[in-house]
Amino acid sequence: MWVFNSIFGKIFEIVFFPFKSMTPWIGMIFISFLTALLMLCVFRFTSHQQGIKQVKNKIKAHLLEIRLFKDSLNVSLRAQGNILRYNLKYIGYSIKPLMVMIIPLILILIQLNLWFGHQSLTPGQEVILKVEVDEDLSLLDTEFLIESSSGLVIETPPLRIEETREVNWKLFAKETGIHELSMTVNGHRIVKKVAVAQKSLNKISPVKVRRNFIDELFHPGEAPLPANHPIKSLEIKYPSNYMSLFGWRIHWLIVYFALSIIFGFALKGVFKVEI
C-alpha cells in the first residue's frame, strides 16, 4: 500500500509544487479544473452519450408539451409522467460513469485532505501529540523516550490515559521548518514529521499509522509503522483548516465540489460531452 501511496502522493506534490507559495485558492482552482477534466473524460468514455442526448431531448420535448398544452390536463399529466420516466432513465445512464469515478475520486479526496484539511503550525503555537498504544502494552510501566529537533519543544511529561489507551504530550512550535520528532518505545524507534511552515499551501500528514490496509488508505501521507509495532498510531492534532472567502469560512470540500462542477459545466461544450 505504501508504494502506491508514495507514488500517488508524489503526483499531487508535483501538481501543487508551483502553487505552494500562493494562496491556497490557486491550487484549489487548478485541482478542481483537473478534476473537471477527468470527470468529463470518464463521462465521455464510459457513459452512453447518444442515449443521454436522446433522453435529454425527450425531457425537453415533454417540457415544451406541458407549456403548449397547459389547458389540457390530460396531456400535461401524461407529459409529466414521461418526464419522470426519462429522468429515471437519465439517472440510469449516469450510474456507470459515477461508479467508475467514485474510487479515483475518493483517493483524490484523501490526498487533497492532506493539502487542504489542516493548518500547519505557526511559531508560538502549541499542539497535542497523541500516541495510541497496543492493548498489551502497559501504559505505566513502559518508557516513552521522546526527542525533537530544536525548533520544536516538548513541553510536558507524558500524560497517560488508560480509558482511551493513549499517551499525550504538549508540543510547542518554536521555529518554522519541517521538524522531526523521534520516539523510542521498547527499543522501537519512530520518526514523525511535524510541519511548522510558512508556505501558504503545505502538505500536512497528521497521522502515522501501523501497517493495515484501511488505516493506510485513509492516512497515506507517511510510511506506515511495521505491523507488529507496539504503537498503533501517532497523531499531531493540527488545527482544522478552512478556506476563507469574503470573511466566510468554508470547508475545502464544498469549495472543491462547487468549483469542479462549475468547471465541468463550463467545459462540457468544449469537449463535446453530454452530461
Binding site: T23, M243, L245
Partner: peptide, 14 residues
C-alpha cells in the same frame, strides 16, 4: 476587485 479578493483568500478582510 471581487476576483482579486477571492484570489487573496485568507488574506482578504473587510
Amino acid at each position: 476587485s471581487s476576483g482579486a479578493l477571492l484570489t487573496l483568500g485568507s488574506g482578504s478582510e473587510l
